[in-house]
Amino acid sequence: MNDQMNTESAAHDSIKRRLLDAYQFRHAVKDFDPGRKISSEDFDFILESGRLSPSSYGFEPWKFVVVQNPELREKIAAHAGGARRQLASASHAMLVLARLPHEMVADSDYISYMLNEVQKLPPDIAEMKRGTYDTFLRTGFALQGNERAMFEWACRQTYLALGNMMTAAAMIGIDSCPMEGFVKHEVERVLTEEGLMDAGRFGLACMAAFGYRAGEAPAKTRRAASEVVEWR
């Protein structure tokens, strides 16, 4: 028993060290090495960490669009001053979309699809969950009826997936950079014209670039734990 406990404890310590090492490794890379490409296997692993991420009620209000076409990246970069360097050099560029408010209301076709086809809930349980969700939207967070708040709520959930993808990448030595430096409506127009986004169902939440850094990372700076965490 003691040997098993010691083995489990050592394994836990190893996982904790690897995870904290990954957070120390990760930083917002501005310039990637354009000559180094992420393997398909590794990027599939990163995407899977996003797909398996948590979301409110498990409704997954996201879509990940991976843009590898250089000409399309240039079109996006024309309206993304804060992402030009990354779009030009990253191995993989991702646009993270969030579902629009009418897609996320309790009686929408999308929510019905999630309850019935994805989560495969029995009809009575599905309707109970739909009712709970409707109450949450109307009185819990009081989101329904406020289009901006509703969309931003969906966007916040996409950041859970994005954070997991960046952590997964860092765990295997791949760099990343989350990006919001873009003109939203212009990039959305490009995506719609290119057939990459259904503007009636999605909006752009954020971008992310993945690859390998082209130089040394700056020293990581963070506030002390005593400033961030408070116990009572």
Rank of each mutant, 00 (worst) to 15 (best):
residue 156 R to T: 06
residue 164 N to H: 08
residue 70 P to F: 11
residue 97 L to T: 01
residue 126 A to P: 02
residue 107 D to F: 03
residue 18 R to L: 09
residue 32 F to D: 08
residue 176 S to R: 01
residue 205 A to G: 06
residue 185 H to C: 10
residue 213 R to A: 14
residue 164 N to V: 02
residue 7 T to W: 12
residue 173 G to V: 12
residue 8 E to G: 06
residue 127 E to V: 04
residue 205 A to W: 04
residue 170 A to D: 04
residue 191 L to Y: 05
residue 52 L to S: 06
residue 224 A to L: 13
residue 126 A to Q: 07
residue 176 S to M: 07
residue 161 A to H: 05
residue 123 P to V: 10
residue 165 M to H: 00
residue 224 A to H: 12
residue 196 L to N: 03
residue 96 V to A: 00
residue 82 G to S: 10
residue 50 G to K: 10
residue 212 Y to E: 05
residue 171 M to Y: 02
residue 147 E to H: 09
residue 144 Q to W: 04
residue 52 L to E: 04
residue 141 F to S: 08
residue 138 R to F: 04
residue 155 C to P: 03
residue 52 L to I: 13
residue 100 L to T: 12
residue 206 C to W: 07
residue 62 W to V: 13
residue 197 M to Q: 10
residue 214 A to E: 13
residue 114 M to E: 07
residue 53 S to G: 03
residue 218 P to F: 14
residue 218 P to N: 14
residue 209 A to D: 00
residue 1 M to Y: 11
residue 31 D to R: 14
residue 228 V to L: 15
residue 217 A to T: 13
residue 221 T to Q: 10
residue 21 D to E: 12
residue 232 R to P: 03
residue 72 L to G: 06
residue 181 G to S: 10
residue 143 L to H: 02
residue 202 F to Y: 15
residue 21 D to W: 02
residue 95 L to T: 00
residue 187 V to D: 08
residue 99 R to E: 13
residue 9 S to L: 15
residue 162 L to D: 03
residue 71 E to H: 09
residue 158 T to Y: 01
residue 82 G to W: 01
residue 183 V to T: 15
residue 53 S to R: 01
residue 220 K to I: 15
residue 139 T to Q: 15
residue 147 E to I: 12
residue 119 Q to A: 07
residue 170 A to P: 00
residue 55 S to R: 04
residue 69 N to Y: 03
residue 187 V to W: 04
residue 211 G to N: 09
residue 193 E to G: 02
residue 217 A to L: 11
residue 232 R to N: 10
residue 7 T to Y: 11
residue 52 L to G: 03
residue 152 E to Q: 14
residue 109 D to R: 12
residue 39 S to Y: 05
residue 188 E to R: 00
residue 70 P to N: 12
residue 217 A to Q: 08
residue 13 D to K: 10
residue 107 D to A: 09
residue 204 L to E: 02
residue 19 L to K: 00
residue 215 G to C: 15
residue 171 M to P: 06
residue 165 M to E: 00
residue 49 S to M: 13
residue 114 M to W: 08
